[in-house]
Simulated scan of single mutants.
Amino acid sequence: MNTPNRTDFRFSERLRVRWSEVDAQKVVFNAHYLSYFDTAIAGYWRALALPYEATLAALDGDLFVRKASLEYRSSARYDDLLDVGIRCRRIGNSSISFDAVAWRGATTVVAGELVYVFTDAAGQVPRPVPAALRTALERYEAGAPAVEVKVGRWAELGRDAQAIRS
């Protein structure tokens, strides 16, 4: 697995290593890195301005982890500040692949890949990634703003603005 550069990531979330995450070797216990990545994925959804639960309900779907792989490069220790980068690398027919990296300063601590499968909400059967979600992810990763603010008359913008007001 190649280590992506920080500049390859539009989104990162800063986390501090807590005492409860350190093992007898005085380093972060390996399983906690998946928790760090999960926390950063939640932040990624906020950066997209797509509340996770409401967005998936509106799409009548859900996302399930299909694959999670980690490659350890260094160790994080109690009270370290980690920057956890997340980026959408690929959108397949029903899957979405993310790269995740945790850095301590300039040092890569762990790099990983997370693959999610989009499914119908009830039966957990894979479905194609909805076009609206695909577009939102692609636009965000291309640098487009997650939200756009327009000022205008209610007669022009009211239909779209009503959802925000309610």
Rank of each mutant, 00 (worst) to 15 (best):
M1E: 09
N2R: 12
P4L: 13
N5K: 12
N5C: 03
R6V: 08
T7I: 10
T7Q: 12
F9H: 08
R10I: 14
F11K: 03
F11E: 03
F11N: 01
F11S: 03
E13L: 15
R14S: 11
L15K: 02
V17H: 06
R18E: 15
W19T: 09
W19F: 15
S20E: 14
S20P: 02
K26G: 04
K26C: 01
K26E: 10
K26S: 12
H32N: 15
L34I: 14
F37G: 01
D38T: 10
T39R: 11
T39C: 06
A40Y: 10
I41L: 14
G43M: 06
Y44C: 00
W45V: 02
R46V: 09
R46N: 09
L48T: 06
P51W: 07
P51A: 00
Y52V: 02
E53V: 12
T55C: 05
T55Y: 08
A58H: 13
A58V: 06
L59N: 06
G61E: 01
G61W: 00
D62I: 01
D62E: 09
L63N: 02
A68V: 14
A68R: 12
S69E: 15
L70D: 01
R73V: 00
R73T: 03
S74R: 03
S75G: 01
S75R: 04
S75L: 05
Y78Q: 06
D79L: 14
D79G: 04
L81C: 06
L81K: 04
L82V: 04
L82H: 07
D83G: 00
G85N: 02
G85M: 01
I86N: 02
I86S: 04
R87M: 08
R89F: 08
R89S: 10
R90D: 10
I91C: 03
N93C: 05
N93V: 11
S95H: 09
S97Q: 14
A100N: 05
A100F: 11
R104D: 05
G105C: 06
A106V: 11
A106Y: 07
T107V: 14
V109W: 01
V110N: 02
V110L: 01
A111V: 13
E113K: 12
Y116P: 00
V117L: 02
F118E: 00
T119V: 14
D120P: 06
A121P: 01
A122Y: 05
Q124S: 12
P126E: 07
P126R: 07
R127Y: 00
V129H: 10
A131V: 15
A132D: 09
R134D: 10
R134Y: 09
T135Q: 13
E141M: 08
G143D: 04
A144R: 13
A146G: 12
A146P: 08
E148V: 15
V149E: 14
V151H: 15
G152Q: 11
G152T: 11
R153Y: 10
R153L: 11
E156C: 05
D160F: 14
Q162V: 09
A163G: 05
I164C: 04
I164Q: 14
S166H: 10
S166M: 13
